[in-house]
C-alpha cells in the first residue's frame, strides 16, 4: 500500500495531465468532453477532514482552469462537490462509510459507489455547464 502523502499528489498530477492533455482534446459525438478529474475529489479518504477536501478541490479546479483558460469555472464546480461529498455519502448509506477507508468499487460496493459517483458528477456537470452559459 502506497503512503498517502505520495499517493495523492501523484494522483493529483496524473488526473490533471490526463484531463488537460488528453481528455480536453476528445469530443464524444462532436462536443462532449469527459471530465475525469472529478474522480480525484471523489476518491479522497472518507476520514479526511472536510476543510482539507475543500482546499484540495479548489486547488485541483484552479489548476484545470489555468490550463484551459476558464479561470474560476472548474474551481467553483469542484469546490461545490468537495463540499457536498460528505452529505451525499451520508444520504446514500452510512454502513459502507464506517466499513471502509476510502470510496471505491471494492471498498464500498458497486451499487453504493455508482450511486455516489452519479449523484456528484451530475451536480458538478449541472453547475459547470450552467456557469459556462451565464459567464
Amino acid at each position: 500500500m502506497m503512503k498517502a502523502w505520495i499517493k495523492y499528489p501523484l494522483m493529483f498530477a496524473a488526473f490533471v495531465l490526463l484531463q488537460v492533455l488528453i481528455l480536453n482534446q476528445i469530443h464524444l459525438g462532436g462536443f462532449l468532453n469527459p471530465y475525469i478529474y472529478v474522480l480525484f475529489i471523489l476518491l479522497l479518504p472518507i476520514s479526511m477532514p472536510r476543510y482539507q477536501v475543500l482546499l484540495l478541490s479548489f486547488l485541483l479546479g484552479i489548476t484545470i482552469d489555468w490550463f484551459s483558460n476558464t479561470l474560476g469555472l472548474h474551481a467553483a464546480s469542484a469546490v461545490l462537490i468537495g463540499f457536498l461529498r460528505s452529505p451525499v455519502m451520508a444520504l446514500i448509506s452510512v454502513r459502507e462509510i464506517e466499513q471502509s477507508d476510502y470510496p471505491g468499487l471494492k471498498q464500498t460496493g458497486i451499487k453504493w459507489f455508482l450511486t455516489y459517483v452519479a449523484v456528484l458528477v451530475f451536480i458538478h456537470h449541472f453547475f459547470l455547464f450552467y456557469l459556462e452559459q451565464v459567464m
Partner: peptide, 25 residues
C-alpha cells in the same frame, strides 16, 4: 472558496482582463 471562484469567473474571463493565470504562462 466559492466566492473567490465566482469572482474569478465573472471578472477574469473577459479577454482584456485575462492576464492572470492563463494558458500562455
Amino acid at each position: 472558496l466559492e466566492i473567490i471562484s465566482l469572482v474569478f469567473v465573472f471578472n477574469y474571463n473577459n479577454y482584456q482582463k485575462s492576464r492572470f493565470l492563463n494558458s500562455s504562462s
